[in-house]
């Protein structure tokens, strides 16, 4: 076997019989084999997510119930806050609590993916130093965790919707594609933050404050049309405005949203996903050196 095969002829970077490793610190891996391997090892992401969900509330008395209790308690806190500021619960529009729940739960899906994603690569340093695999599985796994935590909270939303006599219509089904866009957006953010955290360890310390401010700038505690004139720019500058605003309008009010809103949501979601994936993939082979 004296013929030197080139990198192009080599099997993929992770498994197979022939590997060539050449200098690369930045730069993208070859896409086809990368995503083939990513897909082949998807079970790893699922298993990782399951074990982290299991491990998270292991020592508490209520256990996994906290995944539902946490967002519910939080929603109650914000409900009380808004009620006091508005001067009584009768001053709130009907269905406000359902709106708050829907927005907050979706927001927590995004912020959960962000927080998980940011620490995903660093906390898996041991397995990164020991095994060659597509690192993208790590942030993807944390997004899956966030989605898994989100699903049961929808049961609470349904309960609240029934209690506040929300009407149901086919329009509400359109909230599902919007939810998909929200997840796509969260995935892109998770990958961006995972990369950022490797280079700036301060990221996870800043994150909670950033997340809190972002919550206040998004139509969660208020309705999209209640944004003051001076802050109208948020409608375009804040990705969550179209994503969460659309989500709330579709799901809670059963109102169709304008095409421009769909378009914005779509652009933000896939723009972030592609940017996140490219940044992550071009940097991931440098991770092992920096952990």
């Amino acid at each position: 076997m004296s013929i030197r095969r080139t990198a192009i002829e080599a099997d993929d970077d992770f498994l197979g019989d022939f590997h060539v490793y050449e200098p690369h610190r930045a730069g993208l891996p070859r896409m086809r084999p990368y995503f083939r391997e990513l897909w082949r090892r998807r079970e790893f992401a699922f298993e990782m997510a399951k074990s982290s969900i299991r491990a998270h509330h292991q020592d508490t008395a209520l256990g996994v119930l906290w995944n539902v209790l946490n967002p519910l308690l939080l929603a109650s806190v914000y409900y009380v806050l808004v009620m006091v500021l508005r001067g009584g619960s009768d001053k709130l529009p009907s269905g406000y609590f359902a709106h708050l729940l829907a927005g907050l739960f979706a927001f927590y899906l995004v912020s959960g993916a962000m927080a998980g994603g940011a620490s995903s690569v660093i906390s898996a340093s041991k397995i990164i130093m020991n095994t060659a695999f597509p690192r993208m599985l790590l942030p993807l796994s944390t997004v899956y965790v966030a989605v898994r935590k989100f699903v049961p909270t929808m049961a609470i939303f349904l309960l609240a919707a029934v209690i506040s006599h929300l009407s149901f219509s086919w329009v509400q089904l359109l909230a599902i594609p919007m939810l998909v866009l929200i997840i796509v957006f969260a995935t892109g953010l998770a990958m961006l933050l995972a990369t950022l955290q490797v280079y700036f360890r301060d990221t996870t310390s800043f994150l909670p404050y950033f997340v809190r401010i972002w919550l206040y700038l998004s139509p969660v505690l208020y309705y999209p049309e209640n944004v003051p004139e001076k802050l109208k720019i948020l409608e375009f500058a804040n990705p969550l405005f179209s994503l969460l605003g659309g989500w709330g309008d579709l799901l809670v009010r059963g109102e169709l949203i304008p095409w421009s809103m769909w378009l914005q949501a779509f652009a933000w979601a896939f723009g972030t996903l592609i940017a996140g994936a490219l940044v992550f993939m071009s940097r991931e082979r440098d991770f092992a050196v920096r952990l």
Partner: peptide, 11 residues
């Protein structure tokens, strides 16, 4: 294949 070479080549 965990650490990339800075220069050179591994087969």
């Amino acid at each position: 294949g965990i650490l990339p070479p800075t220069s050179g080549r591994i087969e």
